[in-house]
């Protein structure tokens, strides 16, 4: 490698612009953040992490974030899986229309999506009004501005991208496999539990990774709907740096590192599972 680099010589300059951006705006700030999380006024300390893991407010934020992220990702994944399955079997105009709908809604997120949900399910949202008119309590008393209420938006933005990913995984399942499984006497359910899902597992886990990362980093929706009434990790992190309350970069850095570690651990765990299934495929 070194030999090659020497040979390339001055041509290494082609790499400079990319290296410049990555080093200055990714590596240095990240390293700085790790260091800052262990600092308090110039001295080394573990206090920041101690607060993160002992103070109820941060523990609750972590718990809330993990709950809404995990549950919306799992439910999103299940929905995506079955829509992907249903779509992979259909073709023609209906399918391409459905794909357009998925593409359109995949760009519908953040502030506009939250505003749309406020018009549908907010305090005087259309469906809340309908619920009141017809005495449907579940709709009339829907409380969008809460963790459980917000959940519906989380599930919403988990659908389009996830379904598109699942669909491409389903299209790799060959018709011949199904036919030969049926010939050997396997039923529909048996085919999917023994062949289909294990083959698709790497793709399913990859999709789960994406959904998880998407949900845990979600900021616009909770900021708009619950802001400070319910604490979430992403909101707490930002508050420590730019919030109205006193800024505490040390603590904020520790929280951000915890957020990062959660994502890394989650990806690590799913990759372990993935490897297990990929090994299975090699045998």
């Amino acid at each position: 490698m070194i030999k090659n680099i020497k040979k390339a010589g001055g041509k290494m300059a082609f790499l400079l612009p990319l290296a410049f951006i990555v080093i200055l705006f990714e590596w240095i700030p990240l390293a700085d953040m790790v260091i800052r999380s262990f600092m308090d006024g110039g001295t080394f300390t573990l206090d920041n992490y101690a607060s993160v893991f002992t103070k109820p407010v941060y523990l609750v934020a972590m718990k809330n974030s993990l709950w809404i992220t995990l549950s919306s990702s799992v439910i999103g994944l299940i929905i995506d899986f079955f829509v992907g399955m249903a779509l992979s079997g259909s073709k023609g105009k209906g399918k391409s229309l459905y794909l357009s709908l998925l593409n359109l809604t995949s760009t519908f997120s953040g502030v506009p999506l939250s505003i749309a949900f406020i018009t549908v399910l907010g305090t005087s949202g259309v469906f809340v009004l309908i619920g009141r008119q017809f005495g449907i309590d579940a709709l009339a008393n829907y409380h969008l501005y809460s963790l459980g209420g917000m959940f519906v938006i989380y599930v919403y933005f988990q659908i389009p991208m996830g379904t598109l990913l699942m669909l491409s995984a389903f299209e790799k399942i060959r018709k011949e496999w199904k036919e030969s499984a049926y010939l050997m006497g396997a039923g529909n359910i048996k085919f999917w539990t023994h062949i289909g899902i294990p083959v698709m597992m790497p793709a399913i886990l990859g999709t789960f990774n994406m959904l998880f990362a998407n949900a845990i980093a979600s900021y616009a929706t909770p900021y708009l709907l619950v802001n400070n009434s319910i604490s979430l990790l992403s909101i707490k992190v930002v508050d420590m740096f730019v919030g109205d309350v006193k800024q505490r970069p040390g603590l904020g850095s520790a929280l951000a590192i915890v957020l990062l570690v959660i994502v890394v651990v989650q990806i690590g765990l799913t990759n372990l599972c993935k490897r297990h299934f990929e090994k299975g495929a090699e045998k």
Binding site: F25, E26, P29, L30, D32, M33, A213, I216, A217, Y219, S234, V237, V238, M240, F241, G252, S253, A256, L259, L260, V263, V264, I267
Partner: peptide, 10 residues
Amino acid sequence: TVNGIILATS
């Protein structure tokens, strides 16, 4: 892996 929030705050 490093999401927008961590990137921006750092």
